[in-house]
């Protein structure tokens, strides 16, 4: 027996997942999902869990994180459910409760410290120079003042808590 969690279902709706109620469980999404072909992840099932507010089932395990956000499902959904937006909303909620992979945290920390999701190193600087490009690209990576501004707005949006 599953017991629906009405409160959590409402939280999902408030977080931007309201249209999950449109889903009538046809399974077109699962049939289109390249990730589900390789894993036990079933996007149809995730949409059902979201409708019922099954918080523990949604947050535990890797299913929620198996989606590559490829939109194959969403393109074909006969009910035009914004599936990827719903998955993003669920992930935001999971992260806010501390469910986050270490590697994802590193990516978040990288954005917060250098403004990019990958680092720079001497090999890249050399490759860039050999091509006649500036050693560092003309982005926040080359301008600490601009980086400080980026950091300020990320923190204002609560990102500082995620990278802790």
């Amino acid at each position: 027996m599953v017991t629906p969690n009405v409160d959590f279902a409402r939280e999902i709706a408030d977080a931007g997942g309201a249209e999950v109620k449109m889903c009538f469980q046809c399974g077109t999404c699962t049939a289109s999902c390249p990730s589900g072909r390789q894993t036990s992840y079933r996007v149809r099932k995730l949409m059902r869990q979201a409708q019922l507010g099954l918080k523990e089932q949604i947050f535990e395990g890797e299913d929620l994180w198996d989606c590559t956000t490829c939109y194959a499902c969403e393109e074909r959904c006969p009910r035009t459910v914004p599936i990827v937006d719903i998955i993003i909303a669920l992930r935001n909620m999971a992260v806010a409760e501390g469910h986050m992979y270490e590697d994802h945290k590193k990516t978040a920390q990288s954005l917060y410290s250098i403004g990019h999701t990958v680092s720079i190193n001497d090999k890249v600087r050399e490759q860039r120079k050999a091509l006649g490009l500036s050693a560092e690209p003309p982005t926040v990576i080359a301008n600490p003042a601009a980086m400080a501004q980026l950091k300020k707005i990320l923190a204002a949006a609560g990102f500082d808590k995620i990278v802790e």
Partner: peptide, 20 residues
């Protein structure tokens, strides 16, 4: 586009915090 940053990445950063 001088002083730009990561876009930021839609599948990771947006998945952590849509607002940020």
């Amino acid at each position: 586009l001088t002083d730009a940053s990561c876009c930021p990445a839609p599948g990771v950063i947006r998945a952590f915090s849509r607002k940020a």
